[in-house]
Simulated assay, not measured.
Amino acid sequence: MKNNIKKLRKQLGYRQEDLANTLGVTRQTINAIENEKYNPTLELAMKLARLLNTTIEELFTLDS
């Protein structure tokens, strides 16, 4: 699954550590999601979308 997390995170001035602390996960988890090595749970995806002021559909796209 592709994502726009890194792009949106940088636009908002967040570091990976900032997202991780706010969401209660490790920085490594955020890094793995951004690098498409880990797909987040639905709950975490929803929290990420809310924190980054976007929708899940805008944040994540399925590989074709």
Rank of each mutant, 00 (worst) to 15 (best):
E58R: 10
R9M: 02
T54Y: 02
L42H: 08
A20L: 01
K2V: 11
R9H: 02
I5Y: 04
I56K: 05
E36S: 13
L51P: 07
T41S: 15
N35P: 03
N39V: 10
Q28H: 09
L42E: 11
L23G: 06
N3I: 09
E58A: 08
D63E: 15
N39R: 12
L59I: 06
P40D: 08
I56S: 08
Q11I: 09
G13P: 02
Y14R: 01
Y14D: 03
R50E: 15
T22A: 10
Y38T: 12
G24A: 06
L62N: 13
F60C: 05
K10H: 01
G24H: 02
M46R: 11
F60Y: 13
D63L: 14
G24V: 04
R15W: 04
E36V: 13
L8S: 01
N53H: 14
Q11L: 11
E34L: 01
E17D: 11
A32N: 15
L42G: 10
E43I: 14
N35H: 13
K37R: 15
M46C: 10
I56Y: 09
L59V: 08
A49L: 03
K2P: 03
T22R: 09
L42A: 15
K37M: 09
Y38I: 11
G13D: 03
Y38P: 00
T26W: 04
L52E: 04
L48I: 00
Q16D: 02
D63R: 12
T61E: 15
Y14L: 04
D63A: 14
A20G: 03
N3T: 08
L62Q: 12
T61F: 09
M46G: 07
N53I: 03
K7N: 12
N21W: 04
N39F: 12
E34S: 04
L51R: 06
T41H: 00
L23P: 02
T22N: 04
K6H: 08
Q28C: 09
K2E: 13
F60L: 06
M46I: 12
Q28W: 05
F60K: 02
A32D: 14
T55K: 07
L51E: 05
T22G: 00
E43Q: 13
R15P: 00
Q16L: 05
M1E: 11
E57N: 15
L48R: 05
Q16S: 03
D18W: 01
G13I: 02
L59Q: 05
T29C: 07
L19W: 06
R27S: 06
F60G: 05
L19F: 01
N53W: 00
L44T: 12
E58Q: 11
L52I: 05
L62A: 13
L59R: 00
F60D: 07
D63I: 14
T26L: 08
K47V: 01
K7V: 10
R50K: 15
L8I: 12
I5C: 07
T41W: 03
